[in-house]
Design a binder for these strands. Sequence first.
DNA 1: AAATATTTGCAACAACGTTTCTTTTTTTAT
DNA 2: ATAAAAAAAGAAACGTTGTTGCAAATATTT
Lengths: 139, 139
Amino acid sequence: MDSIVHILKQNNLSVTEGRRKILSLFLNSNGALAHADIEKNTDGHFDRVTVYRTLQSFVDKGIIHTIPTSDNSIKYALCKNDCWEGHHHDHHVHLVCTRCGNTLCLDDVVTPTVKLPREYTIQQVEVVVKGVCKSCNHL
Amino acid sequence: MDSIVHILKQNNLSVTEGRRKILSLFLNSNGALAHADIEKNTDGHFDRVTVYRTLQSFVDKGIIHTIPTSDNSIKYALCKNDCWEGHHHDHHVHLVCTRCGNTLCLDDVVTPTVKLPREYTIQQVEVVVKGVCKSCNHL
DNA sequence: AAATATTTGCAACAACGTTTCTTTTTTTAT
DNA sequence: ATAAAAAAAGAAACGTTGTTGCAAATATTT
Ligand SMILES: [Mn+2]
Ligand SMILES: [Mn+2]
Ligand SMILES: [Zn+2]
Ligand SMILES: [Zn+2]
């Protein structure tokens, strides 16, 4: 069976054209996608609301995770670890390339530990690196 | 001379009521402020556009810095290091308290070093910790 | 194939942010 | 202190982003 359909069924999501298409965009992209990227790559074929809802349901199910950016926009990328409904485990560093603008998951770079004064409690650490990505460095 | 006026003059900003008020909000706040917080604390006394422009000019001058958040909103906080026009040096960790919602600069917690594969170049590392702040922990 | 459950698109709306232009305020020069 | 010049504020209009409620369309189950 189509792996896209498989993922959707595994997550108890009914298989619709929009979900298939949007999931395939993530599977075929090496970087993170913003809502706008999806609208662009689907040529306005789906309503804005549908895209929002699809992204939200994918996040809820643990299929994709969000990446915070400093420019007030959310990016989304595939979860490659064992995330599931309500439990994300994406403890890796993200890179925003200042040359090509892409946002990448550095799946092998584990979030460094941060030591805070005793009075604070740490629940989650997000690390976003601004720099130059592999392919831009090789130009 | 008033320290607020002093800061503005030092940065070649003309001294206006809006800038004085907004800068004083930052000086009297222990956490970061969002645009909305400023509007609230000035009681609609200044036009939205003026607030945006003031925040932007403060960032440009190195008086305040932005803090990325995962909820798609920008927060601003005073620069305490030696930042100047076009050169920010705020290499500290930020904490978003999941209890009170405040965003704090942990000025003494230096951004940890991140080691990336040789093919990448690091320009800047942003660390945002989600957790519980000092005062919320003492309740 | 029909019944049921789920998703979609539409419309209307709200929040956020930007641009342009005129008026007001601040600074500088006299 | 006053006038001229420069800078900032305010107002209006607009664009983008994201949300909600509901009817129509589509997918799933029986
Ligand atoms: Mn990631
Ligand atoms: Mn800070
Ligand atoms: Zn790149
Ligand atoms: Zn707190």
